[in-house]
Simulated scan of single mutants.
Amino acid sequence: MKRSSWSVIGALTVTAFIALGSKTAAGQGLPAAVGSPRVYVLNSAEFVGYPRSFLQFGAQGVGGWTPAAFFLIRHPRGNVLVDTGVSDREIDEPGSVWGAGLRQYFGLKKTPDLSIESQLAKARLKPEDIHYVVLTHLHLDHAGNLSKFPTATFIIQNEELKAAWWPDKGFEGAYLHEDIKDTRKFKILRLEGNLDLFGDRSIEVIRAPGHTPGTQLVVARLPRSGMVVFTGDAVYDRDNLEKNALPTPSGAWQATGMLNTYALVRQWRDSGAQVLFSHDGDDFKTYKQAPAYYD
């Protein structure tokens, strides 16, 4: 099936499936739905002192404090998590998932208050309260902790699943077997294009290959705050967006794809959208922090 056909026909089929799934989940004693969508900004880890050139190729010096952010969307039709951050095993067993070399290179810091449970508790939720997990991609700082959501439905581009299990040469280092080993046991909606999650444009998943073969953006539309864009690693931070700067070659599977995504995000931003980066320390400090939220 061509992608253009999937965008119309497949998305309708998936939306119908999700609507049925929401009805089923609502009968399983999950927290009462909120009246309108809310976005919570969460964090899973901190990076300090990594080479700045990793985010912007050719940049000098080291990066300052940088989060590994992820996001929660509480929606009347189900709780949606955007990414799952760095593996919580790195709290009690440093290096057990990432390895000592990667921890040192990125200056990884992972403390108990940055666990999935601690972060979700800011919104009075537990992992079992999450209905859907949208993975912007399956790299180690965005797809740790997948196994903490055995009852959720995962939404992933099919190309990203293939890339994680059979990565191209030179791009294998950011996919960790420990993170993805249980994906074959999960309920997964394999996308080949865009998805209107609830059929009302309140949450949309937008295919944006570039950083990886199956990178995707997530867009939420809120009653008061308007359009909110979650970039994942499609755009690392504001410098990438403003300067049209590409990351290190290992962070750009398809450079033209990344540049096209930059242009799309700038268009949304210039139209009034709030852009929430996963790895911009300066911007992160200006965001509303959970338990505060955007609505």
Rank of each mutant, 00 (worst) to 15 (best):
F230T: 03
V218N: 02
R124G: 12
N240P: 04
V235T: 12
V218R: 01
E128W: 02
G281L: 05
Q254C: 05
R190L: 05
A143G: 05
P76R: 11
V34R: 09
V14Y: 02
F230R: 04
V133N: 06
L120M: 05
Y262V: 00
V229N: 05
L222R: 06
Q28A: 14
H211V: 00
G226W: 07
E172F: 00
W166P: 00
D200V: 06
Q157C: 06
G173L: 09
H139P: 00
K162G: 01
E242I: 10
A174H: 08
A245F: 03
R224M: 05
S250D: 12
E46W: 15
E117I: 01
R74H: 01
D196P: 02
V235C: 09
P209H: 04
P291I: 09
Q60N: 10
T212R: 12
M1D: 10
L189I: 12
K2A: 14
L276K: 05
A26V: 02
D129T: 03
Y294D: 06
A163T: 10
G95C: 10
H211P: 08
A26F: 07
D92W: 01
V86N: 03
M227P: 00
S22K: 02
G226A: 09
V219P: 00
F47I: 08
A273L: 11
I203K: 02
S36I: 12
A245L: 08
A234W: 05
F171N: 07
Y294S: 07
A11W: 00
A292N: 15
G226L: 06
A45Y: 03
P150S: 07
H177I: 03
W65Y: 09
T13Y: 11
P31G: 12
A152M: 10
A121E: 07
D239G: 03
T231M: 08
F284N: 07
L30S: 06
F71V: 04
E93Q: 14
L20Y: 10
W98I: 03
I188H: 04
I180R: 02
I188P: 06
T111D: 11
L197V: 13
Q28C: 08
L176P: 03
R224N: 13
S225F: 07
L140K: 07
G210P: 04
V48G: 00
D283I: 02
Q104T: 14
T24M: 07
Y236H: 15
L276M: 12
T248L: 10
G107R: 01
A121S: 12
G193D: 11
E178G: 01
G85M: 07
W65V: 09
L108S: 05
T151E: 14
E172M: 04
L197Q: 09
W268V: 06
S53C: 08
V275L: 11
W268F: 11
T261S: 14
A152V: 05
L125I: 08
I130H: 01
L108W: 01
H142F: 14
F57H: 15
V86E: 06
V14D: 08
D280W: 04
P213D: 13
A163G: 10
K122Y: 04
E172L: 02
